[in-house]
Amino acid sequence: MDSAEIIQMNDRHLFSPFVFRDQKLRNRIVISPMCQYVATEGMANDWHEIHLGKFAQGGAGLVMTEATAVTRDGRISHGDLGIWSDDHVPGLKRICDFISAQGAVPGIQLSHAGRKGSAQRPWHGNGPLLQEDLDLRGERSWQVMAPSAVPVDTHWHTPHAMTAAELEGLAGQWEQAALRAAAAGFRVAEIHCAHGYLLHQFLSPVTNLRGDAYGGDIAGRMRYPLEIVSRVRRVWPAGLPLFVRISAVDGAEDTGWDLEDSVLFARELAKAGADVVDCSSGGLLRPAMLGTKVRAFPGYQVPYAEKIRREAAVQTMAVGLIYEPAQADGIVRAGQADLIAIGREALWNPNWPMRAAQELGHDIFPDIGMSYAFHLSRREKLMKSLKSTSPQSACG
């Protein structure tokens, strides 16, 4: 059975459009947020525009920015993108305009690093900012905050436990960041509630030791992340989708957050206005993949997306070592997830969607610009001609 026959059997596949609220993705391929650590004071620059723009040219349906800080002190490092000021909007708008012009949908991941902030860029050590970072690069550390005064590790900065007034003030800054994102032209927003960053820190009993309404049992620990989702949804345009990225399991063995907790959380996220739950894992402790529950293998996080989709009745996105087109297509066809996010594979081949379309028997040309389509259509004809006239074909 060839690819065309398989496609006719099931009209829900990797290249079927995905419609949610007033938005339509041309396919179900999403470029996952990938931190670049090259911004200055949160400003988008040429690197970000070309980095993200080439994925739109390559045929992806949705292109997401890296984690973009809602406050200056909410960055992971000095190199993170930011959206805490109106000054950030013009640079981000240029990126949105270009992505949209290529037929893709621009998305932004809104984030606050919490206790994992004030960190070195990965190639400078990936640890906390130290005196040597100030001496060598002028990168000064800052006071980080978190649900409780629990540091990432013994040598990391001890965070300030957030007060009730700080919780309220930060919620307002999430709202302002969402308004700026809409003004810049983003058509999908994702709230980062995974990988050990601030909102994930509220969820886990490992990092949330609070005795007030924002701690204690699972309802208390979910309270602040759900408030943020509700408040962003309130100001985010009604016709635009809202994603939430979660770590479906902490990777902290039996002391942290597990998949059953994530199913419960996903149900509440849907009530708060989330349209898609982006299912990742780990990141709360160091190393990021601590614990056997997060052992990596191809498609290792797909079961999280499948269970949450089925039991919480919410649309999900699968991510993590999904790199073969047939693998991605099979996940969508089987109803394990609605969207497929790829990251490092897209860095290796920004035209991965074109490769996938070709391998799965779809027409690649409607999803790319005419400049590419013109040349690639001629290349395809030439390659077919060469195959038909090759010595091997003649001898066969």
Rank of each mutant, 00 (worst) to 15 (best):
D2V: 05
I7G: 01
M9P: 02
F15Y: 07
P17I: 06
F18S: 11
F18E: 13
K24H: 13
N27L: 01
A39P: 00
T40L: 09
M43N: 00
W47H: 12
H48V: 14
H48P: 08
I50V: 10
G53M: 05
G53V: 10
G59M: 10
T71I: 14
D73M: 15
D87Q: 10
V89G: 12
R94P: 11
I95M: 14
I95E: 13
I99G: 03
Q102G: 02
A104L: 09
V105F: 05
V105T: 13
P106M: 07
Q109S: 13
P128G: 08
E132F: 03
R137F: 08
A149W: 09
H155M: 09
H157K: 12
P159A: 12
L167P: 15
G172H: 13
W174K: 07
E175M: 07
Q176F: 02
L179I: 06
A182P: 09
E190V: 10
C193F: 03
Y197P: 02
Q201E: 12
S204T: 11
S204I: 03
N208E: 08
G211A: 15
A213P: 02
G215C: 12
R223C: 12
V244G: 05
I246R: 01
A252P: 02
E260H: 07
E260N: 08
D261W: 00
A266L: 08
A266G: 14
L269G: 10
K271T: 13
D275S: 07
S280V: 01
S280N: 04
L285E: 09
P287W: 06
M289I: 13
T292K: 02
T292P: 03
T292D: 14
V294F: 02
A296R: 01
A296N: 02
A296I: 00
V302E: 01
I308N: 01
V314C: 11
T316P: 09
V319Q: 05
A326V: 03
G330H: 02
Q336N: 09
D338Q: 04
I342P: 05
P350M: 03
S371I: 06
M383P: 01
L386T: 10
T389E: 00
S390M: 00
